[in-house]
Structures are given as C-alpha cells and as structure tokens.
Design a binder for these strands. Structure first.
Lengths: 355, 355
DNA sequence: TTGAAAGCGCTAACAT
DNA sequence: ATGTTAGCGCTTTCAA
C-alpha cells in the first residue's frame, strides 16, 4: 500500500479492482452531483446538460463504474433476456441456428440465456427454474413443449417461440421450414428419377419436423398412386441412422432410394451404404437429406437435399420476438420457403429423349 | 368474465395468467402471514414452522408465484450466472464443449449467458455489456482475450476461465488439452511412419492452441534432427483449409504428411486430396488432425488424431469455477491429458521385421 | 418461530 | 436541468 493513488479513503472503490464494485452513489459523490444525475448520464434519451454528463462520465471512468443491470431489470420489470432451449447441440444444424440467433439477439440488445437438455426430449426442469427471471421470450429450438410448461410460461407472461417445431398449444408462436413442401419436392424428384422402392428414415417420433416431412412424402406418393414407403427410424442421430440404414439394406426388398429426415442421418446412411455395403451412392442407391447443412455440400457426401434457410428462419423468429415484446398477444406462425438442392447422392431424372 | 374463480378482486394475480405476476406480498396476504415468512418458505435452510410453510406453499401455488430471481440477485450481490463467450459455434468441437458446459453449469445451479462473436477474433463488445450483470464467472471458449477486457473483468470482480486457450494475463485461469504433448506424439508417429516431407497446417495465428501445436510439432522434429515442416495456414475453417491443402499439394516438393491443427481442417484436407487430386489418403498422403471430434471416426474420414477430452476439460473448468466462486483469487491453469488415436488417414509405422 | 423494518442499486415521477 | 423521493421484489438483521 505504498503506491499513492488518487486521494481516497482505503476502502473506496477504485479502478484497480479493490473493494466492492462502484455504485451510482459513489460516482455521484465523486462528481459532486446527485445520484439521479448519474442515472440520467447513463440513460440514452434523458435530459441532462452536456457538462454534467461529462463530469459524471469522468468520475465513472475513474471508479470503473458500470450500471448494475440487475437493478435496472428489477425496476423496469423486464430482463432483456431471451431464454433459448435447445435439444441437441451436437446437430450442426442447430448449432448454426443458435449461432445466428445469438448474433441477432445481440444486435437487438437482448441477452441469451441458454439451456440444453440431455434427455433429448422434454426440457422441463431447467426451463422451470429459469422462468423466474422475467424473460422477454423463450425460444425453443427443436425441443418438445409440454402443455404444462406452456401454461407456466403463460402465467409468467413469457411468450414462447418454437423454432423448427410446431405445437397445438394456443398462444405459442413458431417458425418452420417448408417441411411439407420440401418433402413433396423430394418425392417428386425421386419418382421422376424412376426409383421403384422408396424408403423414409424418420427422426425422433415426437419431432413435428420429422412427422411433417414424412407426411408430405407419403402424401405425394399417394397422390401419384404409389404405395407408402418402407419406414425406419434413425432417431436423428448418426448412430441411430447407421443402424436404420443397415436394416434397410439388409432387406430382401432393398430400397433403391432413401429419404432421410435430415442431413445428419443422410450422412450416416451414405457412410453405411458406401463403406459397409460397397454401394455406389447416387447410382446403386439414392440417398436424400433435408436441411442443406454445410456438410451436405462436402464432396464426400454431396447430398441432394432441401434447404432450410437458417438466416431467414432466425430473422422470422426475431420479428416475432419484437412484436411480442411490444405487447402482441396472439401467436404468429410462419413458414419459411426452401428449395431443392440437387447434388450427386441421388440419381437424377433422365432428360426426356428428343422425339 | 362469467366463469367464477376463487374469490378475489378482479385485478388480483391469479394462476390463470391474468394481471401482473404474483409477488411475495400477494402470497403473504393470501396466506395470512408476513412477507418475510414467504421469503423463508422459499429459502432452503431458513427457520420456519412446517405448518407455516405449507400455508405459504399452498397460497403460492394458487397464485402461480415464483420468487423473482432478479430481486434475489440484486440483494445477494451475485447473479448465479456464468457468461460463456464462444468464437466459432460452427466448429462442432466447440459446440460439443458448449453442450457439456451447459449441462455441468445447470447441475451446479448456474445459468449460462451466451454470447458469440462474428468477427472470429476479439469478443469485446458483447462481453462489455454483459459484464454489467454481476457474473459469477466468464468462460471464454477458444476466444482471444484482450488485456483491456481482462482488466475490466478484474475491476468487475468477474473471474475469467479460458477453455482451449492460454493467456499471459495474470489472474486468468485456463484449461487446455495437451497441445504440446499431442503434437509431439503426432510428430513421432509420422516420423516412425517414414514420412519424409512434413507439413503443418496452422489455424488462426492468434490461437494459442494452434501455436502450441505447431511448437510441439516443430520442437520434436528439431529434437530428431529433422528440419522445420512446410507451413500453411487454414484459418481453422473448412474453406480455408481446403485452399491451404491445394497450395500444399501443388508444390513441387509436395509433402507426404500433413498435420492439421484440428480435425475440421483435416476433413477439408482429406476431401481435397481425395476428390481434387485423386490421392489415396493414408497411402499416398497422410493427414492427421487434432481433437478427435465425433466426425473424425466416421468411415469417410477415419482420421488419425489426438484426443482432447471435452468432458474432462469441462469438468476441470467447473472445478475452477467452483473455487473461484468460493473466493479463490489466484488463477488455476490446468492441462488435460489426451492420447493418440490411430485410424487410417495416415500411414502407420511398419512393424519392425523379425530379425 | 415470526413480523417489522432496513436496504440491495437503480429508475422515474415529482418538485424545484 | 437538477435534486428529492418513492419504490421495484426480495433477503436479512433485529426484536418480540
């Protein structure tokens, strides 16, 4: 304690990290103004003389003062925090969504409180606890929503936005890719490619995304008078999909085309077909994914797939959050368009011969 | 408003989501006790009669009351929130770390406030703002830490834990994989495999992980009297690594072994070697990664790599956070061991001939 | 064991 | 434009 430091009592807060963090009161005293002047100096639109603000800012700097956001939240009644629940971070598609969401929220001046679930299903407990912060909104990424949780959120006045999932619950907003349309487009593509024995590899049964994709796929086939596809469940995981693919390829009526409910599973399917069964993917067997994740374009896989534009979906979610924060009460459901991306993992339709 | 509902004035908060959220005062009134009794009912170790607690709990349930964590944080001076900054969520290895961290924090009763950076370098601004919550700790995942930010954190009494990164800053804790040892093990493996022209593909230059891996690699080679490796920079990205690999393979003195500073880059390198240059990976060219991410084991890649056990690293970080929260001031630096995983992306040493 | 009262650090009327 | 005052919802002495 021999180094002299700007006159101040030993226990006064300083920028050197000693003592407790500085409060607005400390700053006010040092600047010779009232505590509310300090508050105003840090409130964007407040009416305060430039000179006063400068004094305050200088004092604040000297003390290393930062307004306590917790106190601010307490009084304003909202936390400026958005809760984000995510089921399976291992899935790169969700990681990408989270990344985009994080950026978008930061730009909107909102914080992101993250929780994951390892049970891969409901996300109850962690959210329960976190609901006690006055969240501005709760975004659930590919995660199931129980009626009970939905009710609790309503009670706590926390609006819910589902990403990549739909729910029958009222008052629950959602943003989804074009699962139905995408699946139909894929069905059309495979039929045009003259595939004869079609299979669908489902994700987790509770997943509305998987269900919708299956539904669209089956509906188009039915429309064309084609029977329902063979069905296996790959659980949306690499291991699960690999196992499902083995079952498919071991059948006596082995399918010649497999529509996997997401790219992840398509990758596993390709690996199994190529390395375990020695099949040439895209010629001897066609494998299609869904989502167009970055890996889908890697030369090892070159997956034919249907896009689910992360950026647009996050943008749509942000728009909904904005409305919700401004007091909107009704749910918004939005579907973001996508398109078929044709690569080489599935046989293409032959061009019609010139006649 | 015709449905009768438990006697109560129109604007009193109810479990049906009307009105404002219930406060401890509301509960106290309904239960016929003081507000402090309500507080005690929700404070684990508090001295309160069972009968009183029951009354309070019943009333709370009826009103849908949940203690306001913001108010609790304000008074307790700590938020029970850990900030997590992450540079590049697209990297599955970091996504996996985040997943593990999220689970571990939840188990420890801590919340996770996430922020990412798109500049892929410093993460200044977003953290700046978030520091105003009284974070219990700040975990930086493969993210650079500027001296300025370090100082601010010290002022705000927010301890920093670096994951996958080291820093010369004092008071900054860190957890790392065995970059030096791993790189040496890889160098030894490649030399034993009789590779003659070694190359190193670096990640971002500011990354301590990349630097340490390069250092360990070079040091072992020097020890063995082998000259320094050819060097290219792949920026830790798929595209960057692909470009770097093209440059390497177009050299007249094309390397016969490439040590990539992470698995991500190794994957890109394999794709380029295999699909653009028609090389048989593991025979005509050896490619080694670092980290042993799940994809490394996929049959398409089968990367020889060095493990960086996510679980152990996160566990180490949690231990450090625990100590820090209990008042420890000194930094802790820990290195988590790993091991070489031999797959088929690199030629193996021939077994010594029996003599 | 319980209630009354004093804040935690801040914002937002309300005066001046 | 500035200071004074009254809380935000909770925890925690301090008495009773």
């Amino acid at each position: 304690m021999s180094k002299p430091q700007s006159q101040s009592s030993p226990d006064s807060p300083l920028a050197d990290g000693g003592g407790r963090p500085a409060t607005a009161d400390d700053v006010a005293r040092l600047a010779g103004v009232s505590q509310s002047a300090v508050s105003r100096a840090f409130t964007p639109g407040a009416s305060i003389a430039a000179a006063t603000r400068d004094k305050v800012v200088a004092a604040a700097e000297q003390l290393g003062y930062q307004p306590n956001l917790i106190a601010r939240s307490l009084i304003s009644g909202r936390s400026n925090i958005v809760g984000v629940g995510i089921g399976n971070l291992e899935n790169p598609a969700f990681a990408a969504s989270l990344d985009a969401l994080s950026l978008a929220l930061a730009e909107a001046g909102l914080r992101l409180l993250l929780f994951t679930t390892n049970t891969r299903g409901q996300i109850e407990t962690p959210i329960q606890e976190v609901l006690q912060y006055r969240l501005d909104a709760l975004v659930l990424l590919s995660t199931a929503l129980s009626p009970k949780l939905a009710l609790q959120c309503r009670n706590a006045h926390v609006p819910i936005v589902l990403l990549n999932r739909t729910s029958a619950e009222p008052h629950v907003s959602s943003v989804n890719g074009d699962n139905l349309g995408g699946a139909r487009a894929i069905a059309a593509f495979l039929l045009a490619g003259e595939h004869k024995r079609l299979a669908f590899m489902a994700g987790m049964e509770e997943s509305s995304a998987s269900r919708e994709r299956e539904q669209g796929f089956g509906a188009y086939l039915a429309d064309q008078g084609v029977g329902p596809p063979i069905r296996e469940n790959g659980q949306f995981t690499h291991a699960g999909a690999a196992a499902a693919m083995r079952r498919l390829l071991n059948r006596t009526d082995r399918p010649d085309a497999v529509f996997c409910a997401n790219d992840q599973m398509a990758i596993a399917a390709i690996d199994v077909a190529r390395y375990e069964f020695g099949l040439e993917v895209g010629r001897e067997i066609s494998i299609v994914g869904f989502g167009d994740t970055p890996m889908a374009s890697w030369p090892s896989f070159a997956i034919t797939t249907f896009t689910q534009p992360t950026e647009s979906m996050v943008a749509a979610a942000m728009e909904i959050i904005g409305k919700l924060r401004q007091g909107r009460r009704e749910a918004v459901r939005s579907v973001v368009e996508g398109e078929l991306v044709i690569r080489s993992s599935a046989r293409r339709p032959q061009p019609a011969p010139r006649s």
